[in-house]
Amino acid sequence: MKNIPLSRAKRILALVIFVFSSLITVNQSLAQQYKIKTIVIDAGHGGKDGSTRGAYSTEKDVALRTALRLGKLINETLPDVKVVYTRKEDVFIPLYERIGLANKEKADLFISIHCNDMPVYSQRYISGYKKGKKGKKIPIYSTRHVKSTSTRGTETFVSGSGRIDEQDDAIKRENAAIFLEDNYKENYEGFDSSDPESAIILSLMKNTFRTQSLKFAKMIQDQYIGVGRINRGVQEKSLAVLARAGMPAVLTEIGFISNPSEEDYMNSEAGQAEIANCLLKAIQAYKLSVEI
């Protein structure tokens, strides 16, 4: 391990204390300089990436309808917020381009909308019998492929710690100014990822995005719970679509398309309106929490 001179160690310690002190008052800082100005809405899948389906509808179509409805609501209720869609029609968009668009637009929130599904599994069953020696009945086994149609509920994901390093470039490029004072380059003599001080700052910034993503995800789940949806919770997973996000980012599963009643709900006018309103209210609550 490389030895750090005492004076340098003191600088690092002082920096850690300073940054942690800054994080304690992060809401006040955000109120002064941070506003939710741009939201990127991602309708999951699309085009050739669209095999997940229920009895009569596909995930890619339900997700797109929900995304467009949510964007319309945001435009109507939050006119100061710019809405950007990763897709507005049935086209295939690679995962890296989705989050790349959010980084390019300097988005303040990224929301990816999906429908959940249960995996197909093989089930062995007796399909008949044949006669064996001495007239003994011998079962004939066949295999069928089935999946659960009873699983239901909503869940929201944030990027897991396993892919957190993929956020480095986006954070340094797009969002450093949100969490650091305006003259941080002068204070710390530049931002160098190989430098111990900069590494500490970067680590704390990634933790801030994780914390904000978890906060926003919980607000979404709370809204689902409020209208009677089954809560499957907030989870952290290594999802490629979220891994390089330079902003708070979530992926929300609005229901199980493999469940007939939830498929009907997600395709109905009432269900679509309720889901979009839940997401809008979560956005409004999050916006209020970071701007005031």
Rank of each mutant, 00 (worst) to 15 (best):
V234F: 01
F209D: 07
P5T: 11
I283H: 02
G153D: 10
S194M: 06
L73Q: 14
N183K: 12
V120P: 00
I220L: 13
L13N: 14
A273I: 05
I201Q: 05
I17A: 13
E236N: 08
F92S: 15
G162N: 09
G162H: 01
R244C: 11
I138Q: 05
L73S: 06
D108S: 10
H45Y: 10
V250Y: 09
S112G: 09
V16N: 12
L204C: 14
E181I: 11
K133Q: 07
M1H: 13
G135I: 12
G46N: 10
Y141T: 02
S159L: 11
K133E: 12
A102P: 00
I200A: 14
Q167A: 15
K215L: 15
K60C: 12
G135P: 00
T66M: 13
L204Y: 13
P248M: 13
P5W: 05
P260K: 10
S127W: 02
E263C: 06
V120C: 00
A14T: 09
C115G: 12
E291R: 01
G128F: 03
T58E: 13
G47I: 00
K137P: 03
K133T: 05
L109W: 03
G50P: 10
G153P: 11
D169N: 09
T252E: 08
Y129A: 07
G54C: 06
G71T: 09
D42N: 13
P248L: 07
L68G: 11
L251D: 04
S22L: 11
A243F: 06
G162R: 12
T52C: 06
L73I: 07
I257M: 04
I111R: 07
R210T: 15
K82L: 04
I24D: 05
